[in-house]
Amino acid sequence: MSEEVLVSIRNLHATANGTPILKGIDLDLRAGEVHAVMGPNGSGKSTLSNVLVGKPGYEVTKGEILFRGKNLLEMEPEIRAREGVFLAFQYPVEIPGVANNYFLRTAVNAARAHRGLDPLDAMDFLSLLREKMKIVEMPDDMMKRAINEGFSGGEKKRNEILQMLLLEPDFCILDETDSGLDIDALRIVAGGVNRMRSPERAMLVITHYQRLLDYVVPDRVHVLSKGRIVRSGDKDLALELEEKGYGWIETGDAAGARS
């Protein structure tokens, strides 16, 4: 595995509408690694992912985030995205009236322009889109529909994975992409995620369940509680959590909370 640190989060403190939520997060992701983040409801997992992608409404009060050595916090959200930071949302929004394929092509071409590449024309994009849609087993007609409009919960999540496959980001954050999926959809989503695993990429996979991690085997597992990483370990930590719940960790000290 490569030694290069792709994402480095240092002593990150953040507030949401003035309330402190993240209280000192330290996390390094090396290229090629998949890290799972688990933790009770309300512990700050989505807040962490939102802060990483620059969602308005959060304020970083202390600490820093470096992505390929660059200060992520200084970049506008769309620049972070074009640089290769991707978040699969826990609750993907619907945008009536805007066709999926048009939206996706706009997004892909925005990223290409950022990298100095020519835009894909409609034909080239379509063949790329078809290829990626096969991976997530999405029917053609879904692309002509408005973004997520009337999509089932599982279809929305698959659409997130499709976007990730198209945009080929180097840092992928998945916020509970496995929640609400049936068994087949889980397999499909996990298949999409595994395709993205590569020596150049890092992934932060937020989940509550071991069942995703059966497919997407993490290099590291972290437990977030009350805005801090209270425990880190290898893939077995997730199994242990599945068995014992969070209680034994939260009451314990923060020993071993190093990534």
Partner: peptide, 19 residues
Amino acid sequence: FCRQRGISEEDAVSMIVNG
């Protein structure tokens, strides 16, 4: 959501309005 996919806010607004 649009910005997270690399689309500027301005383009996102006009995309939604045109839609």
